[in-house]
Design a protein around this nucleic acid. Structure first.
Lengths: 331, 331
DNA sequence: CTGTTAGCGCATTCAT
DNA sequence: ATGAATGCGCTAACAG
């Protein structure tokens, strides 16, 4: 590894002079700079990022921490974050939160290897986040509410989304509506369930607990949950699924049982993943502004880095995307 | 930020003693360690990762650099890499190669902010890779051939995959076969095209250049390319698409034109993305071992880090997944 | 067993 | 304009 010392020696100047020359400081004469640059070039010198990070006490890097690095759902969030981070001249690194205390997320959060963090998922406990966040290390969490200095929650309006879905169903005349639930301890699921129940009330529709079946937010989970429902007999007329993955699994189970969608049973999902519009029938669902989620979170990070005080909770709107799975296609 | 110095002061010991105690060195008495640990606890101390990285001259982090961070295709590669990196006690960071010389990839590669790199995509020029790679900084490239010390290519057998696809078509009796091409300067496309032509020869099928249409490896690109083909009249009986995205776009264009798949025209793709099995009809395609791609690349990185000399090129097998879009469903 | 000391590579202040 | 010296936070060789 060639260091600045080597460059200085080769150019016959002091280390500091070499540093100035390399950093385009006006404190060095043109010809000296020339000599230094040439030496650096010849030696293939490039500064050691770690050393500079230590010296300047910042890494100019923002960390994005996800449960499931590479999961299809996160794609747009990452892109949104990437966009904003790049335009601020910083770097973005995406890391996994998998592995508890041994996870990359844990280490990076504590060891100051990034200048700010965006966190999605619940695997990092609240107290750690609150402890790690500081003026020069702001943290934005994406899927839970958390109050603290230098900590901000950017949420999407889960409850409102569920309402819109149910209202849509109600408007189409469905009165027997089931809920395909995610894990009950999940924040998203709780919010969506709340919205679901509220909308039922608003529309004077009774809540039938028998039609509440649960999966793990996976296609497979939705599939088996609906299998159970089918085995129980006495189906609802419509199902609101707490996410699209499960809705897709549900559709498979339904189709296998020769239950027609939407004629026999309507279904609406949540997330608007890419697959939703490729299903037959196309899945009506609640879309989240995923890209904006990423950009918003990142903007907030940079605001905080610049010393602005930040509002603790930002809520992003959702939008019902009406396709075919509820029996109406407004296209 | 509380440093080791603060801890030492509070525990009334020298800095080095504190360091030893914190690192569980046996060179320190139990009660001293106790005192230090207690002080650290009370101060909420945690070591500065950047400083340690500098001192030890390693980051225990592997970088995975992708064109399109978060693209759905890469998901499994990332998971494979994550698995192996974690089990070696290292961290994985995924970064974008977007932005040319200002990209995160460029900086991380040169500034020694990771201990090894896995590179997918062509945005980093060969010479930079060859220059950056060193004994303690091995690089694995995933989609191009590159010879050099401490550089290894892990490829999938594009050509063989294309052959299998065409052989399958041929076996089913198709003799008029078109090629839906990606960008002609893309390595993947070149290899696949080569395999395509070779298979035609092997099966004594003429290559008709009129049936070679080109897109940009995107759904939209496939859609428009096939629109052109349709406008030209005189369709082939089957199409081999250089990737699934384009095949899906092609299917849309075909369906709009009331060309039935596979009755009027068979189609086979490449990649086996998730959507492939959800299409109607389900897309027959060439599957790559994506997860293994990630694990293999990462294994090689760690081998190199341990000083093993590495074979320069590793080629992974592909597999034809027969579904419905060519007229046969062997399920 | 504990403290002193010397860097890792770089940026920067203060003399010259 | 240039060079010598200092320190970022941590580790490790050496001395006591």
């Amino acid at each position: 590894m060639t260091t600045i010392k080597d460059v200085a020696k080769k150019a016959q100047v002091a280390i500091s002079t070499a540093s100035y020359a390399l950093n385009n400081s006006p404190k060095v004469s043109a010809k000296t700079r020339e000599r230094v640059l040439k030496a650096a070039e010849e030696l293939g010198y490039c500064p050691n990022g770690v050393a500079r990070n230590l010296k300047k006490n910042k890494t100019e890097t923002i960390g994005l921490f996800l449960n499931d690095l590479g999961g299809p759902f996160y794609s747009e969030i990452v892109q949104g974050a990437q966009e904003v981070v790049s335009s601020n001249g910083y770097d973005l690194v995406a890391c996994s939160t998998y592995g508890g205390v041994d996870s990359t997320a844990y280490r990076f959060l504590q060891e100051k290897r990034v200048d700010g963090a965006i966190l999605l998922g619940s695997s990092i406990p609240d107290d750690l986040i609150l402890k790690a966040a500081r003026q020069d290390f702001p943290i934005v969490v994406l899927d839970r509410e958390l109050q603290g200095d230098y900590v901000c929650s950017v949420l999407i309006d889960n409850s409102e989304g569920a309402c819109q879905a149910v209202n849509h169903l109600s408007k189409l005349g469905y009165r027997k509506i089931g809920y395909l639930s995610g894990p009950t301890n999940s924040y998203d699921n709780q919010q969506r369930f709340e919205g679901f129940k509220k909308a039922l009330q608003d529309n004077n529709i009774p809540y039938i607990s028998r039609w509440n079946v649960q999966g793990k937010f996976t296609e497979n989970g939705g599939y088996h949950a609906v299998k159970m429902l089918l085995a129980g007999g006495q189906l609802p007329e419509a199902i609101f699924s707490a996410n699209d993955e499960m809705a897709i699994g549900a559709m498979c189970a339904l189709q296998e049982a020769h239950v027609r969608i939407p004629e026999d049973l309507a279904i609406v999902g949540f997330d608007d993943i890419r697959l939703a519009s490729y299903m037959k029938p196309q899945l009506t669902t609640v879309a989240q502004p995923k890209y904006e989620w990423g950009t918003m979170a990142t903007h907030i990070i940079f605001q905080a880095l610049e010393g602005d005080v930040l509002t603790n909770i930002v809520r992003l709107p959702v939008e019902l995307v009406i396709r075919e799975s509820c029996g109406v296609n407004l296209k």
